[in-house]
Nucleic acid binder design. Structure first.
Lengths: 223, 223
DNA sequence: AACGTAAGGATTGTTGAACAATTCGACAAG
DNA sequence: CTTGTCGAATTGTTCAACAATCCTTACGTT
């Protein structure tokens, strides 16, 4: 059928130089290569990537809208350094997006994705790979929001988690923060699979309360 | 005290030409001056506004990220024309953002904002000003999400509603769509003031079911 | 009539250079 | 120690040019 072709349309779209530049910068920011607070020089980066300043500036605009960069007029762009209020607001939003997600009926396919994230996190933890635990944990929560089946909510969650990674990069002890939540993810998965949505929602609320408390306590954006 | 000055910091921030251009274009799109589907010529608009193509392109990027413009490589930017699937997804997101909002304890101040929106809508309806009813209705729902007290959720809702206005501009009969919901807003406000959050949530769910059904039924993006 | 091809004009994508506007640090003066 | 001033460095914006791509039209083939 012709209709099936629509599924491949995404592969068809190429991308402009500005978009590819934005992708590169986004990766670097998320990976922590550009630490929060650092200023990104137009001249240095445009020369380093071999693109013109104009093209680079288009890329900067894109990332500014994702809250990964902070654009200050006549002073340049800086890797965003979230404030404590930002952290608190991020968790407010997580409660809304993820809380509503677990209350939905979960499809078999969506649960599979969530289960894979749980297993990846456990495997990474067994090997002491705390970076890996972090990314698996993020995939877990992204998959939770995926229960909505909504492109816009997925995108909003993606941005939210990218911003949250900035917060983690400011902290020095990722293990202490990720480790306690592996077991809870497993527990949450079991509740979802059993269809006990209200208990899952309660479990998630506890998760957020504890995570936000820990995070805000340990977070010192300027020191 | 010197600390009080921090409150005025927002007034201090100027804006670049690109941002002001984006503001102008956003207003025009939301007001319907640029109808959905229309192509925006770089040459014509840059000349019309007296800015360079590069600056205009920075503005285009900003609006593309807000889903108001559709940027197609080597073909130009078009005012976004939401599909039926988009409409459905917008309502999925509204259910999440607004549904969670009404379940929160509402402050006196937030309820005042909501009440004003209800009264404005009723006043506009009495005068047959259906455009005014539409904007008041939008303010009503923006104020609902305001119950969260979350800058990010406010911003997400702002974008969502801007996109929804695109949908309304495609339809030809705004009265038929806005009129039935004035009374329901008043009812919802009463439930919130009485602190009956679960009933308010149920009322809102009905609202969304009916609105989405009506909208999708009447929405024909290509003709 | 349907399809492939070619040519052309028009529009966007990207670059590089130039200049204005602004910031920031250093240093001198009070 | 505070304040004023200067200048280097950086960003904001424009402009002109060229490359890349798309769209239309026309033409020829089957």
């Amino acid at each position: 059928m012709v209709a099936d072709l629509a599924r491949h349309r995404s592969r068809l779209s190429r991308s402009s130089t500005a978009e590819r530049v934005a992708d590169i910068l986004r990766d670097n920011i998320i990976e922590g290569a550009f630490p929060p607070g650092e200023r990104l020089s137009e001249e240095a980066i445009s020369e380093g990537l071999g693109v013109s300043r104009n093209t680079l500036r288009e890329a900067f605009r894109l990332l500014g809208h994702e809250r990964l960069l902070d654009h200050r007029l006549n002073r340049g762009v800086f890797v965003r350094l979230p404030s404590v209020e930002d952290v608190s607001d991020l968790y407010t939003m997580r409660r809304v997006l993820e809380g509503a997600a677990v209350r939905r009926a979960a499809s078999r396919q969506a649960l599979t994705l969530i289960g894979e994230a749980v297993r990846d996190a456990e495997r990474a933890a067994a090997q002491g790979d705390w970076q890996g635990v972090g990314t698996a944990n993020i995939r877990f929560h992204q998959a939770l929001v995926g229960l909505h089946g909504s492109p816009r909510l997925d995108e909003a969650m993606r941005q939210l988690l990218a911003e949250l990674r900035l917060v983690f990069h400011v902290m020095d002890n990722p293990r202490a923060f990720h480790e306690p939540f592996i077991g809870r993810n497993r527990e949450l998965l079991a509740l979802l699979e059993a269809g006990r949505t209200e208990e899952a929602a309660a479990c998630l609320d506890d998760y957020f309360d504890e995570a936000e408390r820990l995070l805000i306590h340990a977070y010192q954006p300027n020191g």
